[in-house]
Design a protein around this nucleic acid. Structure first.
Lengths: 168, 168
DNA sequence: CCGTACTTTCAATTATTATTGAAAATATAA
DNA sequence: TTATATTTTCAATAATAATTGAAAGTACGG
């Protein structure tokens, strides 16, 4: 396989991956393109490479910057803005985890706590089924939150060592 | 808050959660409804409760069964089919992880291995950037796969102990 | 076997989400 | 400041995904 073909496939694969994870397909493609590019790229280059409109490129680049996955780079004597992706994929994974935790997990933990405060006969099987499910899910999200916290804090080698230890 | 209201909100919350995770909103709602219901429900009851069509209910129930999250229950002397959700949320989380690993992670690991086999000068910075990203992502997915494996294998208490140990 | 109650399928429709492109806003260099 | 290059916005449009509902398919009890 040639490099150009590999890049194409990589962009496609990452795009599909993103779509399964609540990330817009184009945003994931732009990210993939910048990840496999040696140099910073400007909007026109990205538009040409991915065959997308200026508005689309702009919007998705902004969103990638909001996630902290991409940043602007100024090149002296060039009016255009250039974009670079964070290439350390461990950092990338952590940024994504952090963002999703903030956007999704935190609000859910809060909602579940509210949902536990209902009036009604705790002996009634319907009330019981409800409360057990809500409690179970709250416990689970709390645990997931702890795991994410751990992954975000732990440095890579420690985390790897841990994994190895536990898998053997 | 009354139980009925709590149920409504729970179904809504779980539905939104699912949508962020590549699971169709209605499928998540049906799942939520069965999770908080004390008794098995038939198609008509589910349709009425969620205000969805028969076709929609049928399709999403089938998908939930494919995931192993819901199963049919036969009630003697009743021609209707009844549905029950697995209520143990740790089991539920494991089933979801298993299914998503199968559907997404496995194919990606395979693709990334292919993408590493390119022709070209490994000294060239473009080739280098490409290979480093692909390798980085492969390492990451392999690690993620190991973590999932661990979570699926480890019994709950061991996993909890581990977490506690590491968080303190 | 029937007749009937129920389930499944899927083409057509509706709802949702993503994308375009051109106008407005902004920034740069002279 | 002004002329111009570049970026941003957003209403209109296109693409995608979910939903309906009625017809076809199944299976149960007699």
């Amino acid at each position: 396989m040639k490099v150009a073909e590999g890049k194409q496939k990589f962009i496609h694969t990452w795009g599909r991956l993103g779509a399964n994870w609540g990330i817009n397909r184009t945003m994931a493609s732009v990210h993939a393109l910048l990840l496999v590019s040696a140099d910073a790229m400007n909007a026109d280059e990205i538009m040409a490479e991915l065959k997308i409109s200026r508005g689309n490129a702009n919007m998705n680049l902004r969103e990638l910057m909001n996630w902290g996955l991409v940043h602007k780079e100024i090149i002296r004597g060039d009016r255009k803005e250039y974009f670079v992706a964070e290439k350390n994929l461990v950092k990338v994974a952590k940024l994504i985890m952090k963002e999703r935790r903030k956007r999704e997990l935190d609000p859910i933990v809060k909602t579940l706590a509210e949902l536990q405060t209902i009036e009604g006969d705790k002996k009634d099987k319907h009330v019981k089924a409800y409360l057990e499910t809500v409690k179970g899910l709250k416990d689970l999200t709390t645990k997931a939150d702890g795991l994410i916290e751990l992954m975000l804090k732990a440095d890579e080698s420690r985390f790897l060592n841990l994994l190895i230890k536990l898998l053997t």
